[in-house]
Amino acid sequence: MFIHAFPTIIIISYILAVVAAMVVGLVLRIPILPERPMRYSWTISIIFPTSILALGFTAMLFKLGYTGIPVAIIVGILTAVFAKYFLERLLPRPQVEEYA
């Protein structure tokens, strides 16, 4: 239950996944941060949710047995592309009136 042996390669992989997503996100002109107030913003940005998705997708693949730095970088790149072109279509913002 308690796993404290955290291989350095795993930590580096997660960091690289986020960095790859950020770099590709910048190239694709995804905003770095949502507009303020951020807690009500529906804008897809590099920090949220692209980085979070990159971490989650990397964790999924690692648990499925696909490990390594190249896998993490590819996941980061694909996550940025996914966030830019497909996320709004897959999970669109609501069309009804918004309260905030």
């Binding site: 807690r39 009500y40 949220f48 998705l53 989650g56 964790a59 999924m60 999970l91």
Partner: peptide, 23 residues
Amino acid sequence: PEGGLVAAVLVYAGNRLCADPGY
């Protein structure tokens, strides 16, 4: 932490489906 990272993605998807930005 893999579980928590995967959970964050799933919660984000659930949030968007429930008209919530997901923060």
